[in-house]
Simulated assay, not measured.
Amino acid sequence: MKDYRQSILFIASILLFFSCGKDNKGNIPVDDGSIRYQLFQLEKKGWKSKLHSQKADDIKFTATEVPIQFYLLKDKGNHDLFEIDSLYQENKTERVIEFTYEQEDEEDLLKEQFTTLSYEEGVKYMSFALDKDFYVVTSKKDTIKCTGVSYERNFKIAPFQKVLLFFSGIDPEEKVQLIYNDKLFKKGTLKFQFKDTYTEILL
C-alpha cells in the first residue's frame, strides 16, 4: 500500500512540473496547465472516493471507487496528457471499484475455516468466479453486471484480500450502489452506496 501511495505522489509531482504538451504532429507547444491542475485535484483527494465499509461478523468489507484516469496514467505515463484525454473519452463509461476483505484478527481469509474451501479453491474462486457475486444499480434503476475481476494476490504478506471490479456502460455522472451477494464467506447481501461521484474531467 505504501508503494501504491508513493507512485501516486510521484505521478502528481511530475505533473506539477510538466508545463506543456504537443499537438498530434508533435511540434506545436500547447498549454496543458488546466489538465495538470485537474489531475492534481484528483491526486489531492487521494485518487479515490470515500471508503464505504461494512462489517459482517469478524470480516470488514470495503468498497472504494478509483477514477480511470489513475489507471491510464499508471499504464501510459504522463508524457502525453492529450493521449490520456483521448483514452479517457473512449473509456469514460467504465467504472473500477477496489474491494477489500479483512478479518478483524488479521487472519488469512482464504483459510478453509472461513470459506469451507481448500486454500487453492479459494484462490480460484477469487480469481475466476467472484465477478458473478457483484453488480451495481444506478440511480435510474439500471442493473449492471460485473464484467471482470482482477484479484491482487498478496501471498500472505498483507492482512487483507483485494480485488478490482470492472463495470461497463455507466454514465460518468451516474451515482451507483454496489451490491455484493457474498457466496464465498456466506455473509449474505451487502450494499455500498456511492453518493460522491467524480465530476467529469475535461482533460
Rank of each mutant, 00 (worst) to 15 (best):
E102G: 06
E107D: 12
D108E: 12
L109E: 02
L109G: 03
L109F: 02
L110N: 14
K111V: 04
F114A: 08
T115Y: 00
T115M: 00
T115C: 00
T116Y: 02
T116M: 07
L117N: 03
Y119L: 12
E121H: 00
K124R: 13
K124G: 03
Y125M: 02
M126C: 07
F128R: 15
F128Y: 14
A129T: 13
A129I: 08
L130I: 06
L130S: 02
D131S: 11
D131Q: 13
D131E: 12
Y135D: 04
Y135E: 11
V136N: 08
V136L: 14
V137K: 15
V137W: 06
S139R: 14
S139W: 04
K140Y: 10
T143N: 10
K145P: 00
C146K: 03
G148S: 13
S150D: 10
Y151C: 02
E152T: 13
E152C: 10
N154G: 10
N154K: 13
K156P: 00
I157R: 14
I157T: 14
A158F: 08
F160W: 03
F160Y: 06
Q161Y: 10
K162Y: 01
L164F: 08
F166R: 12
F167W: 05
P172H: 04
E174N: 09
K175I: 11
V176A: 01
I179C: 03
I179F: 07
Y180S: 06
Y180C: 05
K183H: 06
K183V: 09
L184S: 02
L184Q: 11
F185Q: 10
K186W: 11
K187M: 12
G188L: 13
K191A: 09
K191S: 08
Q193D: 01
Q193Y: 00
Q193K: 06
F194Q: 12
K195N: 13
D196R: 10
